[in-house]
């Protein structure tokens, strides 16, 4: 039966075309990334005709609608960094310890329940978490700590921590899980307790994975928008206390973009702010990638 008389040559050519097509499609992610970069810069760079890069990044005052306007995003950057740092102080221990619980000490029955909980945490829409922080946590903080506003650095950090815990936890868990059993057994066989084995063998061996997890968690926190938009308080100041309101970069962009005149200075300044934000997350992600590739996890032995 010579019905499908594909000659070897034409079949080879078809295969090649298919292969190349898939290759081109797989470039879509990089192409998008490139487009994002190009368009952010295109719309952001014009602001530097008005202010110098230095004044933009280190300028103390953000009064974009004043006459004349001030485009200094230093307090926005500090706002972003402060919520990121404070939230990691909460999310790192909780995320890593939960990962250890899941990977090491939880029984199979319990893990079956806790893992979906972490996944559901990751799936909660940020606007819902922001809403929760606004209507429940803010009044609570105001009452308990007697602060002027419950919408502040602390509240935002708390909500952001909740959002980055799943990232930190699930990537750390993978890293801990892939530490070879042989290493664990070797340690236990020497009379180390389970905790000593975790502290001295498992954690060091999975350190690069956990570091990656932490960086990605922080990257998630610095880029998160709705939460900081709704609960950070929105004041473009350099915070002195945990209960000061702040205005992280994403909040500023989201809040002002709708009102900024199209292709006006304010509009360009917001795009330039997005460039700074983008560069921050790019830095975080490249660092995470570098660490996870440079310090590949070690196997039991490399025979």
């Amino acid at each position: 039966m010579a019905t499908s008389s594909h000659s070897g040559k034409s079949r080879y050519r078809t295969e090649k075309i298919i292969r190349i097509t898939f290759f081109c499609i797989s470039l879509a992610s990089i192409a998008t990334l490139a487009l994002i970069t190009i368009f952010l810069f295109m719309e952001g760079l014009p602001i530097f005709k008005e202010v110098s890069v230095k004044d933009f990044v280190f300028g103390q005052y953000w009064y974009p609608t004043d006459e004349p306007p001030d485009f200094g995003i230093f307090s926005l950057i500090v706002g972003s960094l402060s919520v990121t740092v404070v939230s990691s102080l909460i999310s790192i221990p909780l995320g890593v310890l939960t990962a250890l619980y899941l990977a090491e000490t939880a029984s199979a029955g319990i893990r079956q329940w806790v893992k979906p909980i972490v996944e559901l945490m990751a799936a909660l829409p940020s606007v819902v978490i922001g809403f929760f922080g606004m209507v429940l946590i803010a009044p609570f903080l105001q009452e308990v700590f007697g602060v002027a506003t419950g919408l502040n650095l602390f509240n935002a950090s708390l909500m952001l921590a909740f959002m980055s815990i799943p990232t930190i936890c699930s990537i750390s868990e993978d890293a801990i899980f892939s530490v070879p059993t042989e290493l664990k057994e070797a340690s236990l066989a020497l009379g180390a307790t389970h905790w000593e084995t975790i502290a001295r063998v498992i954690l060091p061996a999975s350190l690069s994975g956990i570091t990656t997890a932490i960086i990605l968690g922080m990257s998630r926190a610095i880029g998160e928008t709705m939460v900081v938009l709704m609960v950070a308080g929105g004041a473009a100041i350099v915070p002195i206390s945990l209960f000061d309101p702040v205005r992280p970069m994403p909040a500023s962009i989201a809040a002002e973009m709708a009102e900024a005149p199209f292709r006006g200075d304010h509009y360009h300044a917001l795009f330039a702010t997005a460039v700074v934000l983008f560069l921050f997350t790019l830095l975080f992600n490249l660092a995470a990638d570098y660490i996870s590739h440079k310090y590949k996890q070690v196997g039991a032995s490399t025979l």
Binding site: L33, I36, F39, L40, E43, S126, L216, S219, R220, I222, G223, E224, T225, P250, I253, A254, M257, L270, F271, A274, L277, F278, T281, L282, F284, N285
Partner: peptide
């Protein structure tokens, strides 16, 4: 890892 607001812009 791109922030969602950056996607928006």
């Amino acid at each position: 890892g791109v922030p969602s607001i950056v996607f928006g812009l």
